[in-house]
């Protein structure tokens, strides 16, 4: 089992680098996860990451990209609820990369 060591804390990760325990997540480990994904976190990135955490909290799942796009559009407006915007923030897949940084499991239906 892999792990991230940070500030004297150990964060367990699976073989693909996702956090094993949702409750371990904090902004410090998110920054490390983002670095591993070569993502420079801006306010727009945090907005999506926090949105995903809220979504998970409410529905207990990480949404598929199509659903994420639609739900973000509903909450943050159409200029953000489109796949071009989200892929610019997370070039290797918004669901996959943003979920990893948010400390969520890999989205259901993600291939």
């Amino acid at each position: 089992m892999a792990a991230i060591e940070l500030n004297g804390k150990t964060y367990e990760t699976d073989e693909e680098g996702y956090l094993v325990n949702l409750a371990d997540w904090d902004e410090d480990v998110a920054a490390v996860l983002a670095e591993q994904e070569n993502v420079q976190m801006s306010n727009n990135h945090w907005e999506v990451v926090n949105f995903l955490r809220e979504y998970y909290n409410e529905f207990q799942i990480a949404p598929a990209v199509r659903v994420l796009t639609k739900a973000i559009g509903k909450k943050l407006g159409p200029e953000k609820g489109n796949s071009q915007y989200l892929y610019e923030l997370f070039p290797y897949g918004p669901a996959k990369q943003a979920c990893k940084i948010a400390g969520l499991p890999k989205p259901t239906g993600c291939i």
């Binding site: 409410e58 529905f59 207990q60 799942i61 949404p63 639609k70 739900a71």
Partner: peptide, 14 residues
């Protein structure tokens, strides 16, 4: 166990 009742609420988004 994980309570997946909440997930039925996401079906509408899908």
């Amino acid at each position: 166990m994980k309570a997946f009742e909440k997930t039925y609420g996401a079906l509408e988004d899908y």
